[in-house]
Amino acid sequence: MNNKESLGELARDFLSSVDEATFLLEEKFGTRCILRLWGSGKIKRCGVVKGNVTYELHGVGCAVKLPHVLVDFDYGPDGRIDGFDAWRLFIYASELPEKHPKYQSKEVLNLEFEEHVASGRFEPMPKGRNGFYCLSKNN
């Protein structure tokens, strides 16, 4: 059991999966942010990216089922994909309990999340995305 894992490691793992997912979306659709394609009726809300990789759009976000994990993220200002909140990190950790055992507890994750925000290791997303954070440059 990895109780020494840091929340920064979990956030970096989450963002790595988001990057993997959006790379696959870009390969298929020509863009990492596929919301406009859905909004204009060019793609369906749910579909197959390739093989057993699927996507489902919702609100301002997307859930992509990769072969090893489901990653659910929101598109941020200017199409940014590096934002997260405590809930998304918890859901992601829940998908990978062997890799992220420490964060199977919402209470542990929420407490550390608040500490990371207070210490500046997670910083608010710019341009008014309330409740969403990104890794600080010092993390």
Rank of each mutant, 00 (worst) to 15 (best):
N2W: 07
N3H: 13
L7H: 11
L7P: 05
G8E: 14
G8R: 11
E9G: 11
L10S: 00
A11T: 00
D13E: 11
F14R: 00
S17T: 04
V18L: 08
E20N: 09
A21M: 03
T22E: 12
T22D: 09
L24N: 04
L24D: 02
E26I: 00
E26N: 15
K28M: 11
K28V: 10
G30E: 11
T31C: 05
T31E: 02
R32T: 14
I34P: 05
L35S: 15
R36G: 10
L37M: 06
L37Y: 01
W38K: 08
G41A: 12
K42D: 12
K42H: 12
I43N: 06
K44P: 04
K50G: 07
K50H: 09
K50L: 07
G51Y: 03
N52C: 06
E56C: 13
H58A: 10
V60C: 12
G61D: 08
A63H: 06
V64R: 02
P67G: 07
V69C: 09
V69Q: 06
V71D: 02
D72A: 10
D74N: 13
P77A: 14
P77K: 07
D78W: 11
D78F: 13
I81D: 00
D85T: 01
A86V: 05
R88Q: 13
R88C: 04
L89C: 03
L89D: 03
A93M: 01
P97H: 05
E98C: 03
E98K: 12
H100Q: 02
Q104K: 08
S105C: 06
K106N: 07
L109Y: 07
E112H: 12
F113T: 02
E114Y: 08
E115T: 11
H116Q: 15
A118V: 05
G120Y: 00
P124S: 01
M125D: 00
K127V: 10
K127C: 07
G128D: 05
R129Y: 13
N130H: 08
N130Q: 11
F132T: 01
F132R: 13
